[in-house]
Amino acid sequence: MTATATTTPNTLIARSLIILLMIVTLLPFLSMLSAALAPQGTYPNGLQWPADPQWGNFVRAFEVAKMDQLLLSSTLIVLGVVPISVLIATMAGYGLAKLTTNKYKWLYLVFVFGLTLPFEAVITPLYYEVRALGLLNTRFAIILPLIGLYMPFSVYWMRAHFLNVPHDLTEAAQLDGATRWKEFWLVQVPLARPAIMSLTILLFLWTWNQFLLPVVLVQDPMQRTMAGALGAFQGQWGTDIPLLCAGSLLILAPTVALFLLFQRQFVAALMQGAVKG
């Protein structure tokens, strides 16, 4: 707490406002938790600590939702999407920032054009494309399109980073005898670590939470992402409020846990991600 932030009335107002915002932010979670602990089959009240908390509801939701399989499926999808996306976006960012002249700005603009594109705008043809590839209802139906859809942001992000790396380093590496490929791996990638880290976090979150693609392209909830599976879960158990709330909390737990662990990195990534995206 800084010295200026302790006494003035303004700060007090701000503090109260922030605390109010925090309460508003947390209430839905608390409300879900209280409902998740209510006895099975009852219709609980908004926020009311149950007399007899049914922690067993979580166990039941875990089994009903087949959480173990879901975790596996989501992890497989993330592993399929994130490393490749980060790799090829880093390469392209380097290529665009360091190897091209102004003449090729159009190429960059083509990438940037996709930045504001809502996924909904391409979901219909994607469905037919994925079907033609014979990938419908497999995890690749989510993995491959996502890699492409992430390219505008990822390339934009990495290019912005590489523009900031002094060009002298590239030249020094060339004189030291590095090929472009070696320079990329031995000089540029180690220096890009922070940018790569942030990008990885963002892509991880977006993939894990991806909903539209799984809903449209994959029927079997067990092949979907966590978020996509949550849709199916709601469709099936939507009337059993305690179970639904317990399931939802379980499904959002992994990202929240990771977030709490890497709070600083996540916040930095999300803020920069917003500014640049």
Partner: peptide, 16 residues
């Protein structure tokens, strides 16, 4: 450049 047998010292040093 790497095959010319030259080495260069930059104004900015350009250390990795």
């Amino acid at each position: 450049p790497r095959d010319r047998g030259v080495a260069m010292v930059f104004q900015s040093y350009a250390l990795y």
